[in-house]
Amino acid sequence: MADLVLKLADSVKSTVGVHTAYGEAVTLDDVTVIPVAVAWFGFGAGEGPQEPDVGSGGGGGGASLPIGAYIKDKTGVRFEPNPIALLAVAIPFVWVATRGIALVFKALRRRRRR
Rank of each mutant, 00 (worst) to 15 (best):
G44Y: 15
P92C: 05
G46W: 05
M1N: 09
A25H: 02
G44T: 07
T32A: 14
L87T: 08
E24S: 12
P92M: 10
H19A: 08
T98Y: 14
L108V: 03
A25S: 10
G100C: 03
V89E: 06
R109C: 02
V5K: 13
L87I: 03
A9K: 14
L103Q: 03
M1H: 11
I101F: 06
T20K: 05
P35L: 03
L86R: 05
L108P: 00
W40V: 06
D30E: 12
P83W: 13
V16I: 15
P66A: 12
S56F: 05
K106A: 07
P35S: 02
V96D: 00
D3P: 07
A2F: 09
G58L: 09
D10Q: 06
V31L: 05
G60R: 07
V33L: 10
A21M: 04
T98E: 04
G17P: 10
I67A: 13
I67T: 11
S64N: 12
R114T: 03
L6N: 08
R112F: 06
A107H: 01
L108Q: 02
Y70R: 05
L87D: 04
F41V: 03
T15D: 10
T75N: 11
A85I: 06
A39H: 09
F41Y: 10
G76H: 15
D30N: 15
D29E: 08
R111N: 00
L28N: 15
M1Y: 10
L103M: 00
G23T: 02
V38A: 15
G100P: 02
F93K: 03
P66Y: 10
